[in-house]
Each structure stands twice: as structure tokens, then as C-alpha cells.
Design a protein around this nucleic acid. Structure first.
Lengths: 151, 151
DNA sequence: GCTTGACTTAAACCTTTGTTTAAGCACGAG
DNA sequence: CTCGTGCTTAAACAAAGGTTTAAGTCAAGC
């Protein structure tokens, strides 16, 4: 293990965990899922490149805005294996995530309004309303609003 | 089974499923979770009161705006067992859900902005940013913004 | 009264995102 | 070289929200 305080450019899983704040068990899990990579020492221990720290931060930040790991993995798949990401890559990712988030916010706003409307209108008719578009849930990650946007 | 087209005020699970669009397996699951109730025939089959249709619609509508079943169950717990809900009940529920949804929308907006900012500022510093408030995820259902709202 | 379709149950299984556990090597300080 | 801490694996467990399956029962039309 490196001397305390030293900045290594190769990290053990413990160091990566300590610096990222992500449990080692989660890091191994991410690796099994192909979200991060490592090489091994002669003794079969993982060693991470320093750039993995940024990847892990990206993963956690993305999760915090609700992205599933599968989607995060797809985006990270555009990164070359060993190379550090370009600024352009992060910009693209940011724009991509913003669009996703905005879509989900709009969907929630529509839901909230429809919900309020159906209950407030006096007919209490949300049996119908709620079932107009049963597939339109937050779990769905389609490209757009489908039927819900139509008048 | 009742004659096709007839409107029964007691429903079999198949009828409830057909009219609500919710699979019978899910209805049994909701019943195990205490979200809906039924009485039984001599032959041990479920019979649902017609008002259950509205409860089920409420459950699905609430799920579609991201409410977990546990929270839906708490709200439905305020309904008396056999009685149909009052208009006031649905109004209260609607207001309650709106507040929840608004809180989640605000959280997502903050996340989106922070994400964009951290990547756009040139320092690519979101290792730090993402970890300022690790507990602040979408999964969290706490009352407020905690550290994130502070300047 | 028989057949068929709807219903019953418990238990296993599924996805996602990990954590925990057990048993066993690796590595570095002294 | 030994000691203790850190690392390795597979496999089991967790929670949410159900679905599927197997084996059996009920209800209703002819």
C-alpha cells in the first residue's frame, strides 16, 4: 500500500473505495457489469487506473439523477478502454442526461396535473384517466411522450 | 360469472382484473400487502366490492407518478374498510401527491443543474460535487433538501 | 353430471443494485 | 519470516414489485 497522503496513479480497490466513497463491494459489482475495468497484479489483485475515479464519480452522479446502470453503461461504452475521457465526452454526456431528466420532469408534471384534474373535476373519473396510457410510467425509458402529449 | 355487459356491484378477481387492466396476480399481491380487501364465497373465492375498482385505479395512478406501494398503503389506510372514499379523501390524497411530486421535480432540477455545472465549468470537478451529499438520491423520500439547498 | 375455464395456494423465480459471508491468498511492516 | 490487514472468490441474502408454475378446487353451461 502506498504511503498515506501520497497520490498514486494506480489504485487498489481499497484506495479507490476510500477516494470515491463507494464501497469496494459496489466497485466489484460495477466491474462485473462492465462499467469499470482493472488489471491484475501477479497475485490476482485489482489495480485501477486513476481515471477510474472519474468514471466512478460519473456513475454515482448519474445514478443520483435516476439513471439505471444499464444506460450509464451504454454511455460509458463510448469511452475508449484505457484512455481518459475528453472534455467533449463529458459535455455530450451532460447534454444527454439533461434531456433525459427534462423528459422525466415533464412526464411527472403531466401526471401530477392529470391526477389533480381527474380528482378535482367532481366526476372522480380517474379509473378511466389512469388507464388511458397504462405504459406511461416513470420506469419507462422510451424516447417520447407517445399518446400522452396528444390532445 | 355474470352476464356479459352487466354491471355487477360484486366482482370476481377476473372481472376486477378485466375492468382495471391489472393482472390478477398483481391484485392478489396488493391484497397480501393489505392495499385492497375482499370477502370470500363458500368456495373460498374472492369477491370484491365495486369500490375496489377505484382503489385499484388510485394505486396504479399513484404508482405511475412514482409512489412506492408502502406509501400508497399508508394513505389508503386512512380509508374506512368497507366504505367508499369521500371526495375530500381524494382531494387530500391529490394534494399530498402533488407535494411529493413537486419535491421530486425540484430535486431532479437541482441534480440536472449541478451535473451540467460541474461538467461545464472546465474543472471537471464532479468527483467532489457528486459526493457533497451522497444521501441525496431519488430513492430517498425524506422531507427536504438537506445540505443541497445550502449555498 | 361432466367438462371447461376460472379460481385457489405456496413456493419458486425475475430484475435491479448491491451487501454479507465464508474460506482462503497477498502484501508490507517489523 | 511472521503477523495483521487487505484482497480474492462464489454464493447467499436483501427489498420492491410482482410473474410463473404446479397441483388442485369451484362454478357454470350443456
Amino acid at each position: 500500500m502506498s504511503v498515506s497522503g501520497e497520490i498514486a496513479d494506480v489504485l487498489t480497490i481499497g484506495e479507490l473505495s476510500g477516494r470515491s466513497g463507494v464501497p469496494a463491494s459496489a466497485l466489484r459489482f460495477y466491474e462485473r457489469q462492465g462499467l469499470i475495468t482493472s488489471h491484475r497484479t501477479d497475485g490476482n489483485q485489482r489495480r485501477y487506473h486513476r481515471s477510474t475515479l472519474r468514471r466512478v464519480a460519473f456513475i454515482r452522479a448519474s445514478q443520483s439523477v435516476g439513471m439505471p446502470l444499464s444506460v450509464i453503461g451504454e454511455v460509458l461504452g463510448f469511452l475508449p478502454e484505457g484512455a481518459p475521457a475528453t472534455r467533449q465526452f463529458w459535455m455530450n454526456a451532460s447534454v444527454c442526461w439533461s434531456r433525459e431528466i427534462n423528459a422525466r420532469i415533464e412526464k411527472m408534471e403531466r401526471m401530477r396535473d392529470r391526477f389533480t384534474e381527474c380528482i378535482g373535476c367532481g366526476c372522480l373519473s380517474f379509473e378511466q384517466c389512469a388507464l388511458v396510457n397504462p405504459a406511461d410510467t416513470l420506469a419507462e425509458h422510451g424516447p417520447g411522450p407517445h399518446r400522452l402529449l396528444e390532445p
